[in-house]
């Protein structure tokens, strides 16, 4: 009788399976998932359990910087427990105006690099409090999508870590501008070094011959700096 039981079991199980698929077939629209690129869930809002409801009522999902308001003080970099923020700055020239922040502070440093590695970030929110300009903050964006394919200038180690493209570059200073300023600084350094070298040679020469203080005064490091400021 195992033979007939086998056939009976087959028929009943097949009918059960067909019921399941037909159940999905007749109301597929009720069961399908979100058609992601066309539709998106709204950003979830919830209390994370710290502070007041109205101020902390968002998920900390992604760190964001308003780079126009950043003065390059590096307080957030120092505050970060996991070193996921990396900031490079360059001094601006004397008298050069690169704008003010939204709080009215005159910016003095050019932020040539401001990368946040979201693979390292642990969403502790500690970097947002030291910021004097209130320009770094957590956003509720949990999707971490990137519309651009911007090449981020990072080291090889960071690139290896950044397999998911989760290092975010916030600096808007173009690379050519950074290179130009670095070149000017390097030129000034070269002039300074040349002057020092000349002075050293002159000093060695004066050790054997009579020293001439008037020549030493003509070549001063200050003249090199003035050239660099042009």
């Amino acid at each position: 009788m195992g033979y007939f039981k086998n056939i009976g079991d087959s028929i009943t199980t097949l009918i059960t399976g067909m019921k399941v698929t037909m159940g999905y077939f007749v109301r597929a629209k009720e069961h399908v998932t979100l058609q992601y690129p066309d539709e998106k869930w709204p950003n979830p809002e919830r209390n994370i359990g710290v502070g007041e409801l109205d101020t902390y009522n968002v998920i900390r999902s992604k760190l964001h910087v308003d780079i126009d308001d950043c003065i390059g003080c590096k307080k957030c970099e120092r505050a970060c427990p996991v070193n996921c923020i990396t900031i490079d700055t360059l001094k601006t020239d004397k008298g050069e105006d690169i704008g003010t922040t939204k709080l009215g502070t005159q910016k003095r440093l050019l932020v040539t690099r401001f990368t946040i590695d979201m693979t390292e970030c642990m969403y502790c929110d500690l970097c947002t409090f030291p910021c004097p300009e209130e320009c770094i903050y957590m956003t509720p964006d949990y999707r971490f999508e990137r519309g651009d394919n911007k090449e981020v200038q990072v080291t090889n180690v960071e690139r290896w870590r950044d397999r998911n493209n989760l290092i975010y570059e916030y600096s808007t200073v173009p690379k050519t501008e950074v290179d130009r300023r670095l070149q000017i600084i390097a030129d000034a350094e070269a002039v300074k070094a040349a002057a020092l070298e000349k002075a050293r040679v002159a000093a060695e020469a004066s050790a054997t011959a009579t020293p001439k203080p008037a020549e030493n005064r003509e070549i001063t490091p200050g003249s090199g700096e003035e050239q660099a400021h042009e």
Binding site: M22, Y24, A28, V32, T33
Partner: peptide, 13 residues
């Protein structure tokens, strides 16, 4: 389309 609906998808759209 039938396979998609039975597998809770939408199929070609």
């Amino acid at each position: 389309k039938v396979s998609a609906f039975m597998q809770v998808r939408l199929g070609p759209m």
